[in-house]
Amino acid sequence: MRKEETVKLISAEGFEFVIHKDAAMVSQTIRNMLTSPGSFAETEHGEVTFPEISTTILEKICKYFYWNLQYASGKQTEFHIEPELVLELMMAANYLHT
């Protein structure tokens, strides 16, 4: 992955997830951060910190981003969600507008 094609998502505990920009931009919130000119520091550094999203949840969200891309390209599999994660995941999804 070339650096300019990636973005670093940082969880509440400080774990870093380096993923493709395309994947991250499945989230409307992240898309806005990365594309609005000059207004976010995130745009320049390609890093976004989520102080309210735990590592477990952020990992699940990254998986969802890639699953969504696959789905859009025609590979329509099921996205499994562990029941114990649902509520927290939902709040994050709400925030990330995804």
């Binding site: 969200i61 859009a72 969600i81 649902v86 995804t98």
Partner: peptide
């Protein structure tokens, strides 16, 4: 224009259980 949103998937999961 893409797959279901994560929000929808979560809501669907909750309705199932």
């Amino acid at each position: 224009g893409k797959g279901p949103s994560l929000m929808d998937l979560c809501i669907r999961k909750i309705c199932e259980d």
